[in-house]
Design a protein around this nucleic acid. Structure first.
Lengths: 244, 244
DNA sequence: TAGGATACTGAACATGAGTTCAGCGCGTTC
DNA sequence: GAACGCGCTGAACTCATGTTCAGTATCCTA
């Protein structure tokens, strides 16, 4: 009957690791106890330490496994010629606890998360460049930086899933975003939010005029990330020195 | 700074609460110990329990205070006629630990975070509508939904600050985003990322044809949140050299 | 088949953290 | 002036949790 468990019955170490990925992904590293993982994997707490040395060692193993798994799935996507990276990731996201693990890692700031984040940025940038050539995306000389932002927004939105879902009156657990959600995202990514390019122009003027990047006061339109509203852009001068 | 103690020395309870906001904001609720807070506030651990009943009670008090404080600062912004919500928030964000507290709450999913998130969405939507009337934002019949997304992205990006900063080669601790960051955000919010409205149109057709929202496969362009697309490099010169 | 290593268990240990509690100083009230 | 209440202390308690360890079963090798 090993056929049911496709990869045959995993070794105890693998069961522990998989159970840990699930638990860490659900409750986070700190709130998950070794005993819980042991119970979920059907082994004794001692065995975990026997195999992984410590709880931290277990996490390291999970990190490594998840990173490898993501890399594998990415390669598969590339091989199969999928153009959309998130279509590829959707498969993972939907059923696998690994996405939850990734999100928790992102939340907790583990090192694995940094690796994955950087990998996703790089890959997204590459795919975006490809899409520009295909005429799907608008050209820009900032593709890489935009990829950073878009990946951050993507995962940031996922981190706040609960709140976003609540706002859209959807179940927080659903993997698929609510139609209203999709619609709003599409609208923003298709048209932007500003009525014209005044803010962008103002910023470009600021930069090209050799002005050193304003610190602390840039917030007006630049920070617009969030609400976009944006006030009077460039006319904010500042005396840097004020500091503290 | 001595003279600054305008409100005279706060009561021990207030000192505890303020110290807790700082500590919770830096390390998170779980990783902060009652003893640490006590030390920071210059009181004994026992006093914290005396005043707040429990560590959870202390958090509740912090939540309440932060929520009230945010509401106050919002009202002030409204009274002073500030058009840009994030300009108003920048004041808080820059110097106050409350933003850090908020972000940690968002990370940990506390109830206060939900309240604040919803409040910010509502306020952003209102301000965005106002900005549309002023001609700064492009009109839309989805303003509220877009506000949800933008607030989520804003805070999501803040949650991933560390990774974003790393990608831009900036210090993770800096409050002000890197120039490259601002530039990329402005570009996206000004022009969007798609070359044309094909994805939006496709989605609208899907919806108007009465199709139930596709599940799990919507990902292609819809999910575009993240990388959706790609661009051409065009990389080149520009401010890069200057930066650093 | 013997012997040893490896997988594994479960009780015990150590520590850290939240919480309890008896008591102290001090201002206020009767 | 004594009694009371309140803010406050700090040692002690309890419990959860990561970790250790002595011991047992199981499998591989000579």
């Amino acid at each position: 009957m090993s056929s049911a468990r496709s990869t045959d019955d995993r070794t105890a170490a693998a069961r522990i690791r998989d159970a840990a990925i699930v638990s860490f992904g659900q409750a986070g590293f700190d709130k998950t106890t070794v005993r819980e993982i042991a119970a979920a994997a059907g082994v004794s707490p001692g065995l975990i330490l026997h195999h992984f040395g410590s709880k931290a060692g277990l996490r390291a193993a999970c990190d490594e496994h998840v990173i490898a798994e993501f890399a594998r799935s990415r390669n598969e996507a590339v091989d199969s010629g999928t153009t959309d990276p998130f279509a590829a990731m959707a498969g993972i996201e939907r059923e696998a606890p690994m996405m939850r693990y990734l999100l928790q890692s992102l939340r907790e700031g583990s090192e694995a998360a940094a690796t994955l984040f950087d990998g996703l940025v790089e890959e997204s940038a590459r795919l975006m460049e490809h899409s520009v050539e295909e005429g799907q995306l608008r050209p820009s000389d900032n593709i890489h930086d935009m990829a950073v932002i878009l990946v951050a927004w993507q995962f940031g939105g996922l981190l706040l899933q609960e709140h976003v879902a609540r706002a859209f009156g959807a179940e927080p657990l659903t993997a698929a975003p609510a139609p209203r959600h999709i619609r709003a995202v599409l609208e923003i990514l298709t048209h932007g939010v500003f009525a014209d390019s005044r803010y962008e122009d103002a910023w470009n003027n600021l930069e090209s005029s050799g002005e050193p990047p304003p610190h602390g006061e840039t917030t007006a339109p630049g920070r617009g990330t969030g609400s976009g509203a944006g006030g009077s852009a460039a006319r904010k001068r500042t005396s840097e020195a004020k500091e503290r």
